[in-house]
Design a binder for these strands. Structure first.
Lengths: 163, 163
DNA sequence: TATTGTTATACTCTATAACTATA
DNA sequence: TATAGTTATAGAGTATAACAATA
């Protein structure tokens, strides 16, 4: 990440999203701003990724499996804040599309271990650069230094250990 | 906000939300972390606010109207990232519950100006302290200094001017 | 013609409880 | 009894297009 190709906010067309509205003391509400910031970032990401045949949520699951081969379905659901019942449907859908392989280990036959198929791995590798660039491009208003600081704070809020 | 009553992360039971999972270079993806952080914060806020008879989204709309009397419905929808068609239903629902008053000004009879009813104002004032405290308590892992820095970065990402 | 808001509808996401199989 | 996952279902949230009224 050089940051050289990141446009300054003005050139990127970032305007006052508030449009003159006020929110009183809730302008200092992190929960409220977190919601707006997330919607703003995703709005910009979707604009870059529309037409792709993987949704951001699906991509995240493929990524989690690729980086953690054999991960248990429930553990992944917890980290990604997805209910187990809903994760079942997501994983079954990805399995049905030949992207994910489910494996029931003999040691604990209640559990399900997940791995990518070759097709899943290819799809992930094909979309990974696009997704990564779209992510950074969605936040052109942050300098590389601010971006780094932002990441650290977000990890802290999420209960993730520092990088 | 003194911060004196804010517990340190350990005492508040903040643990490693990652649970050992890895996400490769996407651990440096702000979009991805933004999503997890927002879900984490809202999870904690909902835990404090469950049972209340206003949803967070509804509260936000009441707040926006209270702070901007006569605000036009569409302008509010844009700032809050809610589609106009969906905002219609939300506002009509609040109107039906006697919390919001709609007014069509003679100067531009296409538009709708919004104001709180007395009942709406009372409900907002009743829930405002609870909501504000729940918001800050949802982020006990941040010091007051970090919290302030976090707010500034979130505003920047949202395209909002600095405080 | 463009803007503001509405309606209808479909789709996705999320939440809840009851259930199976296994430990 | 507790845990991992599934099923079914309801509800909330979100997206799209067609439309009416007004500018």
């Amino acid at each position: 990440m050089t940051g050289a190709e990141i446009l300054p906010a003005e050139a990127a067309g970032i305007e006052d999203g508030k449009a003159g509205l006020s929110f009183g003391k809730f302008e200092r509400s992190a929960g409220f701003l977190l919601r707006i910031a997330q919607l703003t970032a995703f709005e910009r990401m979707f604009a870059e990724l529309k037409g792709a045949d993987v949704k951001i949520g699906e991509f995240t699951i493929l990524l989690a499996i690729a980086e953690n081969p054999g991960v248990r379905q429930g553990a992944m659901a917890d980290v990604l804040k997805i209910k187990w019942s809903n994760m079942t449907k997501l994983v079954r859908s990805l399995e049905g599309r030949g992207l994910v392989q489910r494996f029931v280990p003999p040691q604990d036959r209640r559990s399900v271990e997940l791995r990518l198929t070759e097709e899943g791995r290819k799809l992930l590798e094909a979309f990974s650069p696009l997704m990564f660039e779209a992510d950074r491009r969605a936040l052109p208003m942050l300098s590389d230094e601010e971006h780094g600081h932002f990441l650290a704070l977000l990890r802290k809020v999420s209960g993730w250990p520092p990088l």
